[in-house]
């Protein structure tokens, strides 16, 4: 990683630590939401940005994780076990959802995952005996660890930030290991990857399962943050929202989800003055940004930085070649 990259991350981390001391409770709630959604976006970035598997199901995994945590803790299961269970269940379901990706790609996969999201929503809404139906689940507890009660907004924020840090490190490690290279290979040219001995089937399923697991962890944190969950929070719009975060932030860039989630969480607040028009403006911004910078904000910054530092500055994206060579 370049020195500028390390510096940027250090500043980002410092900001995340200082911020809550300068914010009112609602501000702390917002940055907690940022930390929580960033985890889900990191997962989607792994599946979509690195491994190239289009998924419109990340919102559903956040939902599955949230309900798992809420229902297990209400049944008396200790928090840490419930938390891990949220991730493990999503890992398993994500693995299964990966199977269609072995048969179909691109738009077909988008529709399979879209259908999956809608089915999960229907299950959450209709299976009242388990999920409470449209009334949802409320009074979800926040955890206590060795006497540290995370009930207060500030404490819970630092808990979320801690989980985000651990997950970020784990994902960073994975991406710099041969797995990261294999995921990119899967995205760029699965046929060639297969001919070089890559078990593309296993890597595809892994990309789906791990991405979904992070969705599950995010959901578990989400449940305790808002303390009341209902099916509508995990409908298709949540998946679209996460997708926009990843793309706007910069898909396939490590810092992309952090930036994308920040924009998605903070923009509505900054745009309070526009009252009801916030969503229109957000949508318009995305439409304007897409043709100008389809690689997202982090991509834009990185390209800008590179063209400043390299003398030749020939930053021609190579995707044209990839598409021509793909089967």
């Amino acid at each position: 990683m370049s020195r500028a990259g390390v510096l940027a991350i250090a500043l980002f981390a410092l900001g995340a630590i200082i911020a809550p001391f300068m914010l009112k409770p609602f501000g702390i709630f917002l940055i907690s939401m940022w930390a929580v959604l960033t985890i889900a976006a990191i997962g989607l970035n792994l599946t979509l940005g690195y491994a190239g598997q289009v998924s419109m199901a990340q919102g559903a995994f956040v939902g599955i994780g949230a309900y798992t945590l809420a229902l297990l803790t209400q049944a008396g299961v200790p928090y840490p076990i419930a938390f891990v269970a949220s991730g493990v269940l999503c890992f398993a379901i994500g693995w299964l959802l990966g199977y269609p990706a072995l048969r179909v790609q691109h738009h077909y996969l988008a529709f399979v995952t879209l259908a999956f999201t809608t089915i999960v929503f229907l299950l959450l809404r209709n299976e009242e005996w388990l999920t409470g139906g449209i009334y949802g689940v409320n009074a979800i507890k926040r955890p206590v660890f060795f006497g540290w009660n995370t009930g207060k907004a500030m404490d819970y924020y630092f808990f979320c930030l801690g989980v985000l840090s651990v997950i970020s490190f784990a994902v960073w490690w994975m991406l710099r290991s041969p797995w990261g290279r294999a995921f990119v290979a899967l995205r760029e040219n699965p046929v060639r990857a297969l001919s070089l001995g890559l078990d593309t089937r296993r890597y595809t399923l892994m990309a789906f399962a791990i991405g979904s697991m992070l969705g599950g962890f995010s959901g578990a944190l989400f449940a305790s943050l808002v303390q009341f969950i209902e099916p509508a929070s995990f409908a298709l719009n949540r998946s679209f929202d996460l997708l926009l975060m990843v793309i706007v932030g910069g898909s396939g860039y490590f810092m992309g989800p952090f930036v994308g989630a920040l924009i998605s969480v903070l923009l509505p607040e900054w745009m309070r003055i526009t009252e009801g028009y916030y969503l229109i403006i957000y949508a318009a911004l995305v439409m304007v940004m897409m043709p100008l910078a389809p690689y997202g904000i982090v991509g834009l910054i990185e390209r800008g930085y590179k063209s400043l530092t390299t003398k030749r500055g020939q930053q021609k994206p190579a995707s044209v070649v990839a598409e021509r060579a793909a089967p």
Binding site: P178, R181, A182, V184, R192, S319, R324, A325
Partner: peptide, 15 residues
């Protein structure tokens, strides 16, 4: 052509 355009030459070979 079947190289991985977004990986470096070295990463292509390690892969």
């Amino acid at each position: 052509l079947q190289v991985f355009p977004q990986l470096s030459v070295r990463d292509n070979l390690i892969l």
